[in-house]
């Protein structure tokens, strides 16, 4: 187990390093000078020079990369060019919205998908299975931002029960804050739930064909009991993989969904920073997002080991 953990940690650190250099060099080799990109075409010569000095563009590229890495490790993400506040502060303000949003929709989609997948698999080829598959196909086909608009039309325009956008802020209290996150959470969760339902179902059906399922039944375990006690845990391995992958889709989803609902979160921040060419914010945000994806994948790998004893690297007798 320790060796397994150690190996995975090393791979994770290498991936993080590669990710950071890709982000850095892609933004670096872009046509034109970052300072000019940030200031736009009409920039004055001396403003440009000042910004270049501030960005350290006069130093060699390797020095700048290492300097950036060093700052990152120390938690110093620089100062946003457009907002004129530390990037870390900017991110913290936004994370308190985006993180709960992502986690809530992950929870919601899991709560929908796993029971639906189990229902479909245990009623394989029956009407119930067919209904669940229709739901899943529709959920995959419907773009989440359109679903968000439909939710707004129904709950805000017609019913008038939930806000159409904006965020009340946590300081306004749990109820207003959560009610402004409710529709975004549902909109984000739908496509995830649709995919996860499908994966749960097919994974369960696959596992139900395994020899050890027949063994369990030969011991007198009923089909229902076999499904819960023997199949489910084995079927969770691909499900957890997809959940890990979905996290990165969730991050992308927040960009669009936060724009639909005018929520001041990470997704909207990155979108605005790109639009305003605030490369310092872009660079640090992208690497942080990439890092969170990588860390999530690491956690997923750890979860595998919890689910599947074969991965714990235990010795043979």
């Amino acid at each position: 187990m320790k060796i397994f953990l150690f190996k995975r940690l090393i791979t994770m650190i290498i991936t993080l390093l590669v990710a950071s250099s890709v982000v850095f060099f892609v933004l670096e080799i872009l046509p034109g000078d970052p300072a000019a990109v940030m200031l736009g075409i009409n920039a004055e010569a001396d403003t440009l020079a000042a910004l270049r000095a501030e960005l350290g563009l006069d130093k060699p590229i390797a020095v700048r990369y290492l300097g950036w890495l060093g700052d990152l490790v120390q938690g110093d993400l620089g100062i946003s060019y457009t907002y004129d506040v530390p990037v870390s502060e900017l991110i913290m303000e936004r994370v308190i919205l985006s993180f709960p949003l992502a986690v809530l929709s992950m929870i919601l989609s899991t709560l929908i998908a796993i029971p639906l997948g189990i229902i479909a698999a245990s009623n394989h080829s029956k009407p119930m299975d067919f209904l669940v598959m229709i739901f899943s196909q529709l959920g995959i086909a419907i773009p989440n931002f359109w679903f968000a608009l439909l939710l707004i039309i129904f709950f805000s325009v017609f019913m008038g029960v939930l806000p159409a956008g904006g965020f009340a802020g946590w300081e306004a209290g749990m109820i207003p804050a959560l009610s402004s996150l409710l529709l975004p959470t549902i909109a984000l969760a739908l496509p995830q739930a649709a995919i996860l339902t499908r994966v749960t179902r097919s994974s369960l059906l696959e596992v139900l064909k395994e020899d050890y399922i027949r063994t369990a039944q030969a011991k007198g375990s009923s089909l229902r009991r076999t499904l819960w006690r023997h199949a489910l845990r084995n079927a969770m391995i691909p499900v957890v993989t997809i959940m890990g992958l979905q996290f990165s889709f969730l991050l992308a989803g927040t960009i669009i969904i936060e724009n639909v609902f005018y929520l001041p979160g990470i997704g909207r921040l990155i979108f605005q920073a790109i639009a305003q060419r605030d490369l310092i914010v872009v660079k640090n945000l992208v690497i942080l997002l990439a890092a969170s994806v990588i860390v999530i994948n690491f956690i997923v790998d750890m979860l595998y080991a919890v689910i599947d004893p074969r991965l714990r690297g235990t010795q043979n007798v």
């Binding site: 991936t15 990165s248 992308a252 960009i255 990155i270 979108f271 790109i274 872009v282 994948n297």
Partner: peptide
């Protein structure tokens, strides 16, 4: 590596 990056984020970039 490419697949690990949220594709929409990169497309937006």
């Amino acid at each position: 590596f490419t697949l690990a990056f949220p594709s929409l984020i990169s497309a937006i970039m």
